[in-house]
Design a protein around this nucleic acid. Structure first.
Lengths: 155, 155
DNA sequence: ATGATATTGATAATCGTTATCAAAATATTG
DNA sequence: CAATATTTTGATAACGATTATCAATATCAT
């Protein structure tokens, strides 16, 4: 195994004994460029636009692998499919999600990042040691009803 | 609509103009008794054990409805199915989840509940007003690798 | 009661994801 | 470099959770 290491995330491939294939590199690049959560289908489309000839199964496999490696993490909005986001370490670009349980609308927010950091750092330390768990990322979801769904709730 | 209101959650049915059917009542009772997250399939089984003759489709429909009403909320551990928990208002029984991204193991935790409350209350107020969003519940997930998965990571 | 509306059950259909397995790519060894 | 072992991929079938359909049933309002 002799992956060239130019980017931070490339080290992880050595650590996990995985190869940096064109498909995997392209997926990582897509997430670096698109700063948003993407479904497997969306990643697949973006790969094709780039001219990468990959099968959808490989996309699923690699999204799964990258998640296990901690480079991506899954976010789930209850719409029946998984979404993936880059796990950004630096700069720490924390943002979380407000999810409307009725229409599925998702609002990204990044309020009170500093306070969150203080609180979650402490919590993470407690949990890591208590449960012997390597914490790689976290997600906060707020669930409720958005304005439009609140004003006209009907069967 | 004239639902008898004996329990707190029964009010919500009037508010949302929904009927309290035997199936719906039984589902709520199951979640009151079982203090854990349940999948649709598990709820279905527990209903049958009680002697409730319901179809699986109705279970899905009602879990969905109850979620939209804010009485339940979905939790998702990335294992391909939704789980549901009761949204407990009093006593506030906050607990969140540590999810191993490799083996799917879920650890419930309830550390630092007081500090969480302080921080999240403030965050909730900000988000509610800023995005005009009625927040009904929240979930914090920590993702990472549990001890056993960390010690033997192999393809 | 009567008619309108809501809920349910059985089951087919949908759709995101996973499994299979042979072919291709890449690494390792001699 | 050639030969072999290992990993990754692609096409597609299979799977499984969830949703849609629609007629039957239950419940509500008048």
């Amino acid at each position: 195994m002799k992956n060239k290491v130019e980017k931070e995330w490339e080290k992880e491939f050595d650590y996990f004994n995985k190869r940096i294939t064109p498909c995997r590199r392209a997926i990582m690049e897509i997430f670096e460029e698109e700063e948003r959560h993407l479904s497997a289908e969306e990643v697949y489309m973006l790969l094709r636009e780039r001219g990468e000839k990959v099968g959808i199964a490989t996309v699923y496999r690699n999204l799964d692998l990258l998640s296990q490696m901690g480079l991506l993490h899954r976010v789930n909005f209850g719409d029946g499919r998984e979404h993936y986001e880059m796990t950004r370490v630096s700069p720490p670009q924390h943002h979380h999600h407000l999810v409307c349980t009725r229409c599925g609308k998702v609002i990204d927010y990044s309020e009170l990042v500093r306070e969150e950091h203080e609180f979650l750092d402490r919590l993470e330390r407690e949990l890591s040691s208590k449960y012997d768990f390597l914490i790689q990322s976290h997600q906060i979801y707020f669930y409720g009803l958005c304005e439009s769904c609140r004003s006209n709730f009907e069967s």
